[in-house]
Design a protein around this nucleic acid. Structure first.
Lengths: 204, 204
DNA sequence: CAACAGAATCAACACCATGTCGATTAGACT
DNA sequence: AGTCTAATCGACATGGTGTTGATTCTGTTG
């Protein structure tokens, strides 16, 4: 048993192949936009990255692993930006800021986010990543709702459950809008913000 | 060019193979619950239906076509029930009734509905079916909102756009809840109903 | 009832994408 | 120069899909 194909253990400081790895992910992202997940073949990715399939399997164990890594890369970026966002105390401002940031995220990474959502059922790894991301959003929305006077708690009409529903509303609405155009994304944002404000009791 | 394999032209009054066709769809539904779409192979379906793969391809042109037919069958059932529902003028009652019906639908057909949603991107046929279904819901929600005093129109804060967002909220929330349990479905329903009521201005 | 048509079924095949393996080259560090 | 490991390739095995031509079953009609 030669210690062959670790496929996940090449760890050092800026190896030559780290560039390749990034190239592969970039190619994958491009192809995803072009042909979609199903139509995209491992051969396509390899070819796009300028290597053979065999070489690609040195870096990633499977097609799913490639896409998972791509999602992970994007999602990590989300988290960073999420942490870096200034926190406001005034709920109205907090909501406006959150929606503005969400529009940006979907503008920049709509494709990968849609892919992540699509695959979150069939690929457990991606499901994990996305559900964690959703939790971040839900927690943030919950906090805003509570600060706006919505009763805390997990009951069906309390902050936590409402935040969850609002999160899914935003996810799905943006998901569809980002397939259309930037304009749709902007409109979707306005609508979601409006419903969020109403739900928080900040608008009659 | 022998006129072979029309695969969609066996039309007469209750042929022998119509039973087979139904058996195939039933098997497909069962397998879908058991192993999921990806893991489910055409061979599995055929075997479950008591025929060989070759025979199955006489009825359906592809795996996707089988699932599409299954979705179509379920969705048609939805439409029927949708038509048969009594229309109330009082918005509060209308909302309550709609949510009750939605819970029933997801209890009965949650699996196929989830599958439809998952495949609506990759299989255009299914996307068509589901988007039509969503339109029915959106139209209904819009009507209720307008009757409750929300301004009609397609602007971001007017009835139509709000109805769309609410529809996606319900879809996604039920989608997740129906993966868990009936109890979750009930809680989800309460939350969605609450937000819908608030958005309609029927609750402060 | 015989014979014919079309419905229904099958076994075998070709194709294609995936993932695996052993062998080979390229790079970096003594 | 030598050697160890990262990186790459080509060839193979596997498994699922969809196709085809032959074959059986079933009902209808002269």
């Amino acid at each position: 048993m030669p210690s062959h194909h670790p496929a996940r253990s090449r760890r050092a400081t800026e190896r030559k192949g780290d560039v390749r790895e990034r190239t592969i992910l970039d190619t994958c992202e491009a192809l995803l936009a072009q042909k979609g997940y199903d139509a995209m073949t491992v051969g396509d990715i390899a070819q796009g990255a300028g290597i053979t399939r065999g070489a690609l399997y040195f870096y990633f164990g499977s097609k799913q692993e490639v896409v998972t890594a791509l999602v992970a890369r994007t999602v990590e970026h989300l988290w960073e930006r999420s942490r870096a966002t200034a926190q406001t105390d005034e709920p109205r401002q907090a909501i406006a800021a959150a929606m503005r940031r969400t529009v940006e995220l979907w503008n920049e990474h709509g494709l990968v986010m849609r892919t992540a959502i699509d695959l979150s059922l069939t690929v457990p790894e991606i499901g994990e990543l996305w559900s964690h991301t959703a939790d971040l959003f839900i927690t943030a929305i919950t906090a805003v709702l509570e600060r706006a006077g919505i009763q805390a708690g997990t009951g069906p009409k309390q902050a936590s459950a409402m935040a969850r529903a609002l999160c899914w509303m935003i996810e799905r609405t943006f998901y569809h809008a980002s397939q259309e155009s930037r304009g749709e994304l902007q409109k979707a944002s306005s609508t979601c913000e409006h419903i969020w404000l109403i739900s928080a009791g900040l608008v009659t």
